[in-house]
Design a protein around this nucleic acid. Sequence first.
DNA 1: TCTGGATATAGACAGCCATCGATATAGACT
DNA 2: AGTCTATATCGATGGCTGTCTATATCCAGA
Lengths: 113, 113
Amino acid sequence: MELPQLLECSPPLARRPLDAEQAAGVARVFKALGDPVRLRILSIVASREGGEVCVCDITGAFELSQPTISHHLKVLKEVGLLTSERRASWVYYRLVPETLGELSAIIGSPAAV
Amino acid sequence: MELPQLLECSPPLARRPLDAEQAAGVARVFKALGDPVRLRILSIVASREGGEVCVCDITGAFELSQPTISHHLKVLKEVGLLTSERRASWVYYRLVPETLGELSAIIGSPAAV
DNA sequence: TCTGGATATAGACAGCCATCGATATAGACT
DNA sequence: AGTCTATATCGATGGCTGTCTATATCCAGA
Protein backbone atom coordinates (compact mmCIF):
# COMPACT_ATOMS: atom_id res chain seq x y z
CA MET A 1 0.00 0.00 0.00
CA GLU A 2 1.61 3.21 -1.14
CA LEU A 3 0.67 6.65 0.07
CA PRO A 4 0.44 9.10 -2.79
CA GLN A 5 3.86 10.47 -2.06
CA LEU A 6 4.78 13.81 -3.49
CA LEU A 7 7.95 14.58 -5.29
CA GLU A 8 11.00 15.38 -3.30
CA CYS A 9 11.45 19.10 -3.58
CA SER A 10 13.80 19.32 -6.54
CA PRO A 11 15.28 22.51 -7.94
CA PRO A 12 14.30 23.76 -11.39
CA LEU A 13 16.24 22.03 -14.13
CA ALA A 14 18.01 25.25 -15.01
CA ARG A 15 19.13 25.94 -11.45
CA ARG A 16 21.72 23.21 -11.05
CA PRO A 17 22.22 19.65 -12.24
CA LEU A 18 19.94 17.14 -10.56
CA ASP A 19 21.68 14.46 -8.59
CA ALA A 20 20.85 10.83 -9.29
CA GLU A 21 18.28 10.54 -6.53
CA GLN A 22 16.41 13.70 -7.45
CA ALA A 23 16.40 12.67 -11.08
CA ALA A 24 15.02 9.25 -10.24
CA GLY A 25 12.15 10.74 -8.28
CA VAL A 26 11.20 13.25 -10.93
CA ALA A 27 11.60 10.73 -13.74
CA ARG A 28 9.05 8.42 -12.11
CA VAL A 29 6.38 11.06 -12.56
CA PHE A 30 7.37 12.02 -16.10
CA LYS A 31 7.43 8.36 -17.01
CA ALA A 32 3.85 8.06 -15.84
CA LEU A 33 2.99 10.99 -18.12
CA GLY A 34 4.84 9.41 -21.01
CA ASP A 35 1.94 7.32 -22.18
CA PRO A 36 -0.82 8.70 -24.40
CA VAL A 37 -3.57 6.81 -22.63
CA ARG A 38 -2.49 8.04 -19.22
CA LEU A 39 -2.23 11.60 -20.49
CA ARG A 40 -5.75 11.39 -21.82
CA ILE A 41 -7.01 9.92 -18.56
CA LEU A 42 -5.34 12.73 -16.66
CA SER A 43 -6.85 15.37 -18.91
CA ILE A 44 -10.28 13.80 -18.54
CA VAL A 45 -10.01 14.04 -14.78
CA ALA A 46 -8.40 17.48 -14.80
CA SER A 47 -10.96 19.03 -17.10
CA ARG A 48 -14.01 17.59 -15.44
CA GLU A 49 -16.34 19.96 -13.64
CA GLY A 50 -16.28 19.02 -9.97
CA GLY A 51 -12.87 17.48 -10.36
CA GLU A 52 -14.15 13.97 -9.96
CA VAL A 53 -14.51 11.18 -12.44
CA CYS A 54 -15.98 7.74 -12.00
CA VAL A 55 -13.89 4.91 -13.41
CA CYS A 56 -16.74 3.85 -15.60
CA ASP A 57 -16.65 7.22 -17.36
CA ILE A 58 -12.98 6.76 -18.11
CA THR A 59 -13.36 3.20 -19.30
CA GLY A 60 -16.09 4.33 -21.64
CA ALA A 61 -13.81 6.85 -23.29
CA PHE A 62 -11.33 4.29 -24.59
CA GLU A 63 -11.43 1.16 -26.66
CA LEU A 64 -9.32 -0.67 -24.15
CA SER A 65 -10.19 -3.37 -21.69
CA GLN A 66 -11.31 -2.43 -18.19
CA PRO A 67 -8.20 -3.99 -16.56
CA THR A 68 -5.95 -1.94 -18.81
CA ILE A 69 -7.61 1.28 -17.71
CA SER A 70 -7.41 0.12 -14.12
CA HIS A 71 -3.70 -0.48 -14.58
CA HIS A 72 -3.12 3.02 -15.93
CA LEU A 73 -5.10 4.54 -13.07
CA LYS A 74 -2.93 2.65 -10.63
CA VAL A 75 0.23 4.01 -12.23
CA LEU A 76 -1.06 7.58 -12.07
CA LYS A 77 -2.03 7.06 -8.44
CA GLU A 78 1.30 5.56 -7.46
CA VAL A 79 3.23 8.61 -8.60
CA GLY A 80 0.87 10.96 -6.82
CA LEU A 81 -0.92 12.45 -9.80
CA LEU A 82 -4.33 11.07 -8.85
CA THR A 83 -6.16 9.99 -5.74
CA SER A 84 -9.16 7.74 -5.52
CA GLU A 85 -12.10 7.36 -3.24
CA ARG A 86 -14.68 4.61 -3.18
CA ARG A 87 -18.29 5.63 -2.66
CA ALA A 88 -20.80 2.82 -2.77
CA SER A 89 -20.13 0.70 -5.83
CA TRP A 90 -18.14 3.31 -7.64
CA VAL A 91 -14.60 4.61 -7.37
CA TYR A 92 -13.95 8.25 -8.10
CA TYR A 93 -10.59 9.63 -9.13
CA ARG A 94 -9.45 13.20 -8.72
CA LEU A 95 -6.39 15.19 -9.61
CA VAL A 96 -3.61 16.05 -7.16
CA PRO A 97 -2.82 19.51 -8.50
CA GLU A 98 0.18 19.94 -6.21
CA THR A 99 2.06 17.22 -8.04
CA LEU A 100 1.47 18.82 -11.41
CA GLY A 101 2.44 22.13 -9.86
CA GLU A 102 5.75 20.76 -8.67
CA LEU A 103 6.49 19.32 -12.07
CA SER A 104 5.73 22.65 -13.62
CA ALA A 105 8.09 24.33 -11.18
CA ILE A 106 10.84 21.90 -12.07
CA ILE A 107 10.64 22.25 -15.82
CA GLY A 108 9.36 25.75 -16.18
CA SER A 109 11.43 28.34 -14.44
CA PRO A 110 10.02 31.51 -16.02
CA ALA A 111 13.52 32.69 -16.85
CA ALA A 112 13.99 29.65 -19.05
CA VAL A 113 11.31 30.86 -21.45
CA MET B 1 16.58 13.01 -40.62
CA GLU B 2 14.12 14.64 -38.29
CA LEU B 3 13.82 18.33 -37.71
CA PRO B 4 13.52 19.15 -34.04
CA GLN B 5 9.79 19.48 -34.30
CA LEU B 6 7.95 21.31 -31.59
CA LEU B 7 4.87 20.05 -29.89
CA GLU B 8 1.58 20.57 -31.54
CA CYS B 9 -0.10 23.36 -29.69
CA SER B 10 -2.11 21.41 -27.15
CA PRO B 11 -4.49 22.87 -24.61
CA PRO B 12 -3.70 22.70 -20.91
CA LEU B 13 -4.67 19.36 -19.42
CA ALA B 14 -7.36 21.00 -17.33
CA ARG B 15 -8.96 22.79 -20.28
CA ARG B 16 -10.47 19.83 -22.07
CA PRO B 17 -9.62 16.19 -22.67
CA LEU B 18 -6.77 15.68 -25.09
CA ASP B 19 -7.63 13.75 -28.21
CA ALA B 20 -5.56 10.73 -29.14
CA GLU B 21 -3.31 12.63 -31.51
CA GLN B 22 -2.53 15.45 -29.12
CA ALA B 23 -1.86 12.97 -26.35
CA ALA B 24 0.53 11.01 -28.53
CA GLY B 25 2.54 14.12 -29.35
CA VAL B 26 2.79 15.31 -25.78
CA ALA B 27 3.51 11.82 -24.46
CA ARG B 28 6.56 11.56 -26.73
CA VAL B 29 8.17 14.45 -24.91
CA PHE B 30 7.22 13.30 -21.43
CA LYS B 31 8.51 9.86 -22.27
CA ALA B 32 11.85 11.40 -23.13
CA LEU B 33 11.83 13.08 -19.73
CA GLY B 34 10.88 9.83 -18.02
CA ASP B 35 14.43 8.58 -17.68
CA PRO B 36 16.73 9.67 -14.85
CA VAL B 37 19.80 9.86 -17.04
CA ARG B 38 18.07 12.04 -19.61
CA LEU B 39 16.71 14.31 -16.90
CA ARG B 40 20.19 14.75 -15.50
CA ILE B 41 21.60 15.43 -18.95
CA LEU B 42 18.92 18.03 -19.51
CA SER B 43 19.62 19.71 -16.19
CA ILE B 44 23.33 19.76 -16.93
CA VAL B 45 22.68 21.55 -20.19
CA ALA B 46 20.00 23.83 -18.77
CA SER B 47 22.06 24.96 -15.81
CA ARG B 48 25.29 25.56 -17.66
CA GLU B 49 26.48 29.12 -17.99
CA GLY B 50 26.45 29.99 -21.67
CA GLY B 51 23.82 27.37 -22.33
CA GLU B 52 26.19 25.09 -24.15
CA VAL B 53 27.68 21.79 -23.16
CA CYS B 54 30.20 19.64 -24.97
CA VAL B 55 29.33 15.97 -25.19
CA CYS B 56 32.55 15.09 -23.44
CA ASP B 57 31.44 17.02 -20.37
CA ILE B 58 28.22 15.06 -20.25
CA THR B 59 29.89 11.73 -20.75
CA GLY B 60 32.26 12.54 -17.92
CA ALA B 61 29.38 13.11 -15.52
CA PHE B 62 28.06 9.55 -15.74
CA GLU B 63 29.40 6.09 -15.28
CA LEU B 64 27.82 4.99 -18.50
CA SER B 65 29.35 4.13 -21.83
CA GLN B 66 29.79 6.82 -24.43
CA PRO B 67 27.31 5.16 -26.83
CA THR B 68 24.68 5.14 -24.13
CA ILE B 69 25.06 8.87 -23.53
CA SER B 70 24.98 9.45 -27.26
CA HIS B 71 21.74 7.49 -27.44
CA HIS B 72 20.12 9.60 -24.74
CA LEU B 73 21.22 12.81 -26.42
CA LYS B 74 19.63 11.60 -29.62
CA VAL B 75 16.34 10.92 -27.86
CA LEU B 76 16.31 14.38 -26.29
CA LYS B 77 17.10 15.91 -29.66
CA GLU B 78 14.42 13.97 -31.50
CA VAL B 79 11.66 15.32 -29.28
CA GLY B 80 12.91 18.86 -29.60
CA LEU B 81 14.32 19.37 -26.13
CA LEU B 82 17.91 19.82 -27.30
CA THR B 83 19.72 20.96 -30.40
CA SER B 84 23.29 20.24 -31.33
CA GLU B 85 25.98 21.95 -33.29
CA ARG B 86 29.34 20.60 -34.35
CA ARG B 87 32.32 22.91 -34.04
CA ALA B 88 35.64 21.43 -35.00
CA SER B 89 36.02 18.10 -33.27
CA TRP B 90 33.39 18.73 -30.66
CA VAL B 91 29.62 18.68 -30.63
CA TYR B 92 27.81 21.12 -28.39
CA TYR B 93 24.28 20.67 -27.15
CA ARG B 94 21.95 23.40 -26.01
CA LEU B 95 18.47 23.59 -24.59
CA VAL B 96 15.37 24.44 -26.62
CA PRO B 97 13.56 26.41 -23.93
CA GLU B 98 10.41 26.77 -26.03
CA THR B 99 9.74 23.05 -25.79
CA LEU B 100 10.01 23.05 -22.02
CA GLY B 101 7.83 26.14 -21.99
CA GLU B 102 5.12 24.41 -23.97
CA LEU B 103 5.20 21.44 -21.65
CA SER B 104 4.88 23.75 -18.71
CA ALA B 105 1.90 25.41 -20.33
CA ILE B 106 0.25 22.06 -20.86
CA ILE B 107 0.62 20.72 -17.35
CA GLY B 108 0.60 23.89 -15.35
CA SER B 109 -2.36 26.07 -16.00
CA PRO B 110 -2.18 28.45 -13.03
CA ALA B 111 -5.80 27.73 -12.15
CA ALA B 112 -4.92 24.09 -11.59
CA VAL B 113 -2.64 24.96 -8.70
C1' DT C 1 -27.46 -15.02 1.59
C1' DC C 2 -27.58 -14.97 -3.21
C1' DT C 3 -27.04 -12.35 -7.47
C1' DG C 4 -25.25 -8.90 -10.32
C1' DG C 5 -22.53 -4.88 -11.40
C1' DA C 6 -18.16 -2.21 -10.64
C1' DT C 7 -13.39 -2.33 -9.97
C1' DA C 8 -8.92 -4.52 -8.91
C1' DT C 9 -5.53 -8.22 -9.19
C1' DA C 10 -2.99 -12.17 -11.28
C1' DG C 11 -0.60 -14.24 -14.89
C1' DA C 12 0.89 -14.40 -19.66
C1' DC C 13 2.87 -12.47 -23.71
C1' DA C 14 4.66 -9.47 -27.34
C1' DG C 15 7.00 -5.39 -28.23
C1' DC C 16 9.89 -1.76 -26.55
C1' DC C 17 14.12 0.18 -24.41
C1' DA C 18 18.49 1.08 -21.75
C1' DT C 19 22.73 -0.66 -21.99
C1' DC C 20 26.81 -2.66 -23.81
C1' DG C 21 30.95 -3.78 -27.10
C1' DA C 22 32.36 -3.24 -31.69
C1' DT C 23 32.69 -0.39 -35.40
C1' DA C 24 31.99 3.61 -38.42
C1' DT C 25 32.42 8.53 -39.33
C1' DA C 26 34.25 13.15 -38.88
C1' DG C 27 37.78 16.41 -38.07
C1' DA C 28 42.60 17.96 -36.72
C1' DC C 29 47.33 17.53 -37.04
C1' DT C 30 51.43 15.47 -38.71
C1' DA D 1 47.94 9.27 -46.55
C1' DG D 2 48.09 8.09 -41.69
C1' DT D 3 46.95 8.63 -36.96
C1' DC D 4 44.59 10.25 -33.05
C1' DT D 5 40.46 12.06 -30.70
C1' DA D 6 35.52 12.86 -30.47
C1' DT D 7 31.07 11.38 -31.52
C1' DA D 8 27.58 8.47 -33.77
C1' DT D 9 25.74 4.09 -35.39
C1' DC D 10 25.04 -1.00 -35.34
C1' DG D 11 23.60 -5.32 -33.41
C1' DA D 12 22.68 -7.97 -29.43
C1' DT D 13 20.54 -8.74 -24.98
C1' DG D 14 18.11 -8.61 -20.63
C1' DG D 15 14.59 -6.26 -18.38
C1' DC D 16 10.55 -3.53 -18.41
C1' DT D 17 5.69 -2.39 -19.92
C1' DG D 18 1.12 -2.13 -22.18
C1' DT D 19 -2.26 -5.20 -23.24
C1' DC D 20 -5.14 -9.11 -22.82
C1' DT D 21 -8.13 -12.99 -20.46
C1' DA D 22 -9.49 -14.97 -16.32
C1' DT D 23 -10.51 -14.36 -11.75
C1' DA D 24 -11.00 -12.11 -7.29
C1' DT D 25 -13.01 -8.50 -4.39
C1' DC D 26 -16.26 -5.17 -2.96
C1' DC D 27 -20.80 -3.39 -2.55
C1' DA D 28 -25.99 -2.92 -3.32
C1' DG D 29 -30.36 -4.81 -3.64
C1' DA D 30 -33.66 -8.62 -3.63
